[in-house]
Design a protein around this nucleic acid. Sequence first.
DNA 1: TCGTTATGAACGAGCGCTCAATCAACGAGG
DNA 2: CCTCGTTGATTGAGCGCTCGTTCATAACGA
Lengths: 217, 217
Amino acid sequence: MLIHQQKDIPTLIKDTGLVETRRRQIVQAAVDLFIQKGFHKTTTREIAGRANFSIGTLYEYIQSKEDILYLVCEFIHSEMEKQVKEAIKPAGTGRDTLKNAIDRYLRVCDLMQDHILLIYRETASLPGDSISYVLRNESRITGMFEDILTRGKDDGTLKLRHHRGITLIAHNITVLGHMWTFRRWFLKKAFTLDEYIELQTSLILNELSSHNGDGPP
Amino acid sequence: MLIHQQKDIPTLIKDTGLVETRRRQIVQAAVDLFIQKGFHKTTTREIAGRANFSIGTLYEYIQSKEDILYLVCEFIHSEMEKQVKEAIKPAGTGRDTLKNAIDRYLRVCDLMQDHILLIYRETASLPGDSISYVLRNESRITGMFEDILTRGKDDGTLKLRHHRGITLIAHNITVLGHMWTFRRWFLKKAFTLDEYIELQTSLILNELSSHNGDGPP
DNA sequence: TCGTTATGAACGAGCGCTCAATCAACGAGG
DNA sequence: CCTCGTTGATTGAGCGCTCGTTCATAACGA
């Protein structure tokens, strides 16, 4: 399940099972606190406290506060990918699959609003070498949409005027989900989630239908 | 020029002209540093230093470090709005105006990449009451696109299938510009700015042309 | 000289991180 | 069955330091 290259963080503890459970606790505590107060305003003591062990123990499982941020980002991305992957079953034509995928993806984004915002806010605080890992995670999500679009292009149910369109539209769709989270102050005033999905889906599918060019000259 | 409700920050200095110049210096210094290292990792001493006065003087013109962040956000938004406003001259039909506006807007976003990212990252660190000011600034930009879309709808050069479409598409366009900045790691690998503008514009204009519905049943 | 502005040493709260001490579990030796 | 030593996990007081903020004093200008 979800095997991909990860950075591994040194620990002083020998029992690998224990490392796993403790780190789960750490991440759980940290996610809550980071969402609430942000990375910089959260103290290591608070994280340890909420995970129900002492500051000393915390540092047996990580080497620095930034390691915690990395673990958190990693967790959010893999959670995101897991949820989207299991929601998107290929369904008939490429077009139908896309329609379904957008729907599921946007609902996952809605559920993970705070987590997505967290990624946007705090990724920049990661040490340089961790950032590339996080970016790789991000592009796997976009890649899923590229795959679906390619299928639709191949089976003829989706039309693309520009051959570079697949990459761009895949990014657009990905960002649509993020947009719902970081513009929720505006958007939720005007739309319910269902309306948002309905409208955005119809915009995208229209782009992908055969029609004449740029309108009147 | 750009009169809109702003929060005003107390100062100990009487000479209002001096307050203005010094604050300009503060903002200039802070913007550079925040972009480079982020709000939390930048110290007040660094800001004072780069603005060429002492830490004591800094605190004559603001009350807290967060005030500086507010000034910075305010500056970025008004700069953004100024640049977009002066670039967008109504040109002929609503459709042509829109085409031109998107082009100019995306170019402004490209120029202000770092500033836009800064807003995304640090807005959350503002004290609660400042946030609403920043949000108001943001919606003025989206409002400009709403106006253009409405013009196009009225003069018949832009078609909208859903009546809620104007709001949504205005948001979509706004986010298109932001997306170019916060996904530049991906996008610049695949597209030049000109290509990006060209492709996104044609996607949007297609949505706004008359055509048949959702494709084959 | 008097009001206004500038200075930077000093303050002290709070932070990330360490480490000597403690505890729990377990097995070998009597 | 009871020691007692060993190993590995846990603890939290404390270290060293940074940073936001203040204030007594100096400098300046009219």
